[in-house]
Design a protein around this nucleic acid. Structure first.
Length: 584
DNA sequence: GCCGTTTTCGGCCCGACTGTTTTCAGTCG
């Protein structure tokens, strides 16, 4: 059991205590335990049980519960709370916008025990009549229920990829399998996965089906399955699973058919067709069996198209002209910008964050702790900014040629302003501007707000443009075109936040951003040394939009990045002019 | 529940925002 699972258990216990109306200070104690576990930079499971209180700083009783969790997967108090709460009510805790107190009221006053009953009550206008509720709360509950319904049975990309590879290993081991591959949405690298799809070439489809039927964690759906396709769901997540079973000769064709959208398969191949010439990739696939994917594209007169580009958006015309970009590779990245340390809400110290990245072969770290308005995330008052800069100067001497750039993730305030006075802003090498508060603006307001931040000469980079949390929270609505155009005009880099929950800028806008000449940066937003690995997901999303080494900011060498930051800073006009125009 | 101690119980606590109120509770990051 890892620290995250432990943290989740104690946070759940705290929420359940609140749901049951127990002592607020007891609740706070459990939350404190959760936060303490979250902040630990080593795996608690590795610690000797007797040394737990000393190593973790937890009280004896909390440490005992942690030990119980590690040994049994739960602890008595949590079991008791779960036993006395209907499972459907526990589920309601996941809904954004209502917390334990409101759920308690729905449960105790209206007898609501799950999401279905909650929806019915809201639709019958019963919820708005409860004390402390009103029309707006009722509507936001309905909206949130809609969002959870849409998210049900979907996985984030990394979870989908993991499941796909587990299944792949089972299929490859099955007798009769000649070849198997992950296809579908996972192969196309979609940010969320509805169906995990694999293709297996087998001489013994019956055995392959038996293997799948016998797998723990899968529920077969015989009604939707047939001789050439096994269909079902992953029991835990409810995500759809589909395995196409084909003869070895059909393998490549099936892989091609399942790893592209209809738009890609049906798109026109030429402007003028010769008689009898296939008009689309699908027609080629109907006519011939291919031994490799490259062969199909060659026969169709196209440059080879990587699976992640097979969306039917802009890749076919470019492939016709042999002008597809050489896509970014993870190995092209030479530094990592936008990361957190213990100065704000990160788990690892500045030194740990730096040396880990250096030892991983990177040339530079951009540290961007939260700015002062982000109290919840321990944002940095001016004094702590100065402290951090001193430490960075020391570390830079010690760790050279590795370099730490002085960054900040400045909150974009409600009026679009940045979170420090110009005199402070100018002490940073670069500034990532992100929205973290007041997320419910309409599109016009939200866009104006972000535009102001982009126009601010101190803004080097726009952080997670929409604030979305995939499968959890819609981003605020934004006029992407206006935002990207402004970034082009004001020479602001846009981040592809590589955290699997965010993947924001959305890959669908990457191509447009590149057309406008905007540079993108693959930023992990790491709060822990393990977070750097997320950069891979950012690379995958960038590739979907046609991102290349040349158009990615953090493929620059440390010297190039330093020079860019310096040059950009030198171009900033005197701060007073700007203040006048912003607030005048 | 936890901490700290003038040792056995009193105090513990982020601030902004929203939607509900008519002075504040709940939620969020």
């Amino acid at each position: 059991m890892d620290n995250r699972a432990l943290t989740r258990a104690f946070r759940l216990a705290a929420q359940l205590l609140e749901l049951h109306g127990e002592n607020p200070f007891k609740i706070r104690a459990y939350e404190g335990t959760a936060s303490a576990l979250e902040a630990l930079s080593f795996p608690v499971a590795d610690v000797e049980r007797t040394g737990l209180p000393d190593r973790t700083g937890l009280s004896k009783t909390a440490a005992a519960k942690v030990a119980e969790m590690l040994d049994t997967g739960s602890f008595e108090e949590l079991d008791r709370l779960l036993a006395t709460t209907p499972p459907g009510v526990v589920e309601l805790l996941k809904i954004k916008g209502i917390g334990p107190k409101k759920i308690r009221s729905l449960w105790k006053d209206l007898g609501i025990e799950d999401g279905t009953q909650l929806r019915a009550a809201a639709e019958n206008d019963e919820v708005s009549k409860l004390k402390g509720f009103g029309q707006k709360t009722q509507q936001s509950i309905l909206d949130a229920l809609d969002f959870t319904d849409q998210s049900r049975g979907k996985l984030l990309y990394p979870q989908g990829e993991e499941l796909a590879h587990e299944l792949l290993a089972h299929l490859e081991a099955a007798p009769g399998t000649a070849q198997a591959a992950v296809s579908g949405e996972v192969r196309r690298r979609l940010e969320t996965i509805e169906t995990v799809l694999l293709v297996a070439a087998t001489t013994d489809a019956a055995t392959a089906r038996q293997v799948l039927n016998g797998l723990d964690g899968l529920t077969a759906d015989p009604r939707r399955s047939g001789p050439f396709a096994w269909r079902g769901t992953a029991t835990a997540s409810g995500v759809q699973v589909e395995v196409r079973l084909v003869s070895p000769a059909e393998f490549v064709n099936q892989l091609l058919l399942t790893s592209a959208t209809d738009a890609h398969l049906n798109g026109a191949l030429t402007d003028e067709l010769l008689p009898g010439q296939p008009a689309s990739l699908r027609q080629w696939l109907k006519r011939e069996q291919f031994a490799t994917e490259t062969e199909l594209y060659q026969r169709a007169g196209l440059q080879y198209i990587e699976p992640e580009l097979r969306e039917g958006l802009w890749e076919l015309p470019l492939a016709r002209q042999q002008k597809l970009p050489q896509l970014l590779e993870p190995g092209d990245l030479r530094g990592s910008l936008h990361n957190h340390s213990t100065y704000s809400d990160g788990t690892h110290s500045l030194r740990e964050m730096a040396t880990f990245l250096r030892d991983g072969g990177y040339e530079y770290l951009g540290i961007c702790d939260h700015s002062q308005a982000a109290h919840y995330a321990n944002g940095l008052p001016v004094e702590r900014v100065r402290q951090q800069h001193q430490e960075i100067d020391q570390l830079n001497q010690e760790l050279a040629p590795f370099r730490i750039f002085k960054g900040i993730e400045s909150d974009i305030l409600s009026d679009g302003g940045l979170d420090y006075a110009p005199a402070v802003l100018e002490t940073f090498d670069f500034i990532v501007a992100s929205v973290h508060s007041n997320l419910k603006m309409d599109e016009r307001k939200a866009t104006t707000r972000v535009l102001r931040a982009i126009e601010n000469p101190y803004t080097t980079m726009l952080g997670h443009p929409t604030g979305r949390l995939l499968l959890r929270r819609e981003g605020y609505p934004l006029d992407h075109k206006a935002i990207i155009d402004a970034c082009a005009k004001h020479n602001v880099i846009i981040e592809i936040n590589a955290n699997p929950w965010r993947l924001d800028l959305d890959w669908r806008w990457v191509h447009y951003a590149l057309e406008q000449g905007v540079q993108l940066s693959i930023n992990p937003d790491a709060h822990h040394t393990s977070g750097y690995a997320d950069m891979r997901y950012g690379v995958l999303m960038g590739r979907k939009g046609g991102l290349t080494k040349a158009t990615t900011f953090n493929t620059k060498s440390v010297e190039e990045a330093a020079e860019y930051f310096a040059r950009r800073k030198a171009g900033i006009k005197p701060p007073l002019d700007f203040q006048d125009s912003l607030f005048g």
